[in-house]
Amino acid sequence: MKKTLVSALLCSVISLPALATEVNIQTSMGNIRVDLNEKAAPNTVKNFLRYVDEGFYEGLIFHRVIRGFMVQGGGFDKDLERQQTHHAIAYEGDNGLKNYRGTLAMARTSDPNSATSQFFINHNDNAFLNHGARGGAGYTVFGKVISGLEVVDKIANVPTRNIGPYQNVPTTPVIIEKVTRVD
């Protein structure tokens, strides 16, 4: 009898789903709550949470905003001063997650292994950003918006302009006030 009870308890514990890691992105336009997918992109989530835990994102802006495409932030302050980051991380874009509307993905240069702190939220389904879509690496998706998509829509619709080498910069800064883990 004890063996059966212990076996049943172990089976129920083993089959429990992993706890989701959620963060709240508090912006000057409202809150965006995101569920991070540690199973599909463990190193990317770990990297993002390192910046979150350090308070890195506080006071940074969404510096690139393109309606119908995406909103990007996490690298510049309101004066467009680039922030010092940790080393780049390895590409995890072949994890099966797609760049659908409301998903969170890592920004990078043309080098797939160059993502650091910058991220973007897809404003539309962007299949051309998926792994293999253009014959190679895509952009690593590592989370999805679970509330606050209307805030993403508001951000995506702000007027933008070009400032020096930077394009699609909101005319009024959209500030990331704080990013915190949700318990």
Rank of each mutant, 00 (worst) to 15 (best):
V6T: 12
A8Q: 11
L9S: 08
L9Q: 06
C11G: 15
V13R: 07
I14H: 07
I14T: 12
S15I: 14
L19S: 12
A20G: 08
A20Y: 04
E22H: 12
Q26M: 13
T27K: 03
S28V: 12
M29G: 02
M29W: 00
I32Q: 03
V34M: 11
D35Q: 15
L36K: 02
N37H: 13
K39S: 15
T44N: 03
E54T: 14
F56C: 03
F56T: 00
Y57F: 15
G59Q: 13
G68F: 07
V71Y: 11
Q72W: 01
D79F: 07
E81T: 15
Q84H: 12
A90M: 08
A90F: 08
Y91L: 04
D94P: 06
K98M: 07
N99E: 06
M106D: 00
A107E: 00
P112G: 00
N113E: 01
S114Y: 02
T116C: 08
T116H: 03
T116Y: 01
T116V: 10
F120W: 04
F120E: 02
A127H: 11
G132E: 10
A133Y: 08
A133M: 06
G136P: 03
A137D: 09
Y139L: 10
T140D: 05
V141I: 05
V141T: 01
S147M: 08
S147Q: 13
E150L: 04
V151T: 05
K154E: 06
I155F: 06
V158Y: 04
Q167W: 04
N168W: 09
P170R: 11
T171H: 08
P173F: 11
V174Y: 09
I176S: 02
I176A: 06
I176E: 08
V179T: 09
T180E: 13
D183K: 15
D183C: 06
